[in-house]
Amino acid sequence: MRVRFWGVRGSFPVPGKQTNRYGGNTSCVEVEIDGHAPIVIDAGTGLRQLGKRLVRNEFLDGKGLVHMLVSHTHWDHIQGLPYFSPLYSEGNELQLYARQPGDTHLGAVLAHQNDGPYFPVPLDSLKARVQFNELLEGQQFDIGDVRVRCTRLNHPWIAMAYRLDYGGKSLVYCSDTAPFRDILLEHEFIATPPTVGGPLDTKHAIKLHMMREKLVDLCQGADFLIYDTQFTPVEYESKPHWGHSTPDDAIAIAREAGAKTLCLFHHAPARTDDQQDEIFATYKHLLRDDNLELLCAAEGMVVDLDKGDA
């Protein structure tokens, strides 16, 4: 099982010299298994480059199958979908999985992006076959020989974390989420942030505790844990309601779950490469005597779980 990063950025794509090394495309990760259809996690702008690579192979002849796990439908996690080349060839198939949105069908939510004033090609007129698979929190299912599990995260309008197990190796994708301590994020709009470390409604506290337990369980012994670490601790103080974590939060989860490698992901749009280097170096130093290995996601980075890269 190999993990390839096509987009590592949060919020919106950020072109420019200052993001050349880590990359400016929004979230998209590919899981490659020899002889298995590609599994893509999230469809940010990084998906466009992946699509260009896929259409050189069986996708060119309309014989391609791709599976896609979507964490949630915020723009930075779906905005690459209309620009995914395999969708424009007859015969290709996309199996898309995401959390059941509640009051509407997943297909209807995603169709909005391709509709009238926004995009010229409606979703239902794409040549490829697109199938929407709605997931419930905690659901377990198989994609070929890959076992997939999911659990919900603490994010506005709710996101899903996914765990993939194959051939004795495991990967968890955990983006986007706030830590599980200062605020419960679901469907309510929160205009003003609560005080970090302040008192919490008991019901909310219980719900957050259970959510965290389930996430730790999902991450149990994972070989590779990709985690939303958009904020530095100082940035988090004023934005706990934005639904993103810090490396400290990610490290705490990784340690509790006994994950082997933690990978920082979903970098803030304003973060320059040099600043990201500094964050990475700081936490690398912090973990110098730790069993937990630390990586920082960059566009083009490939991690082979079978070769012990992670």
Binding site: F12, P13, V14, P15, G16, K17, T19, N20, G23, G24, N25, T45, R48, Q79, G80, Y83, E299
Partner: peptide
């Protein structure tokens, strides 16, 4: 200056990818 979708990366640094 870019059409369709932002195009980050070293090959668009001079004209821009936004």
């Amino acid at each position: 200056v870019r059409g369709s979708i932002p195009a980050p990366g070293p090959t668009t640094n001079r004209y821009g990818g936004n």
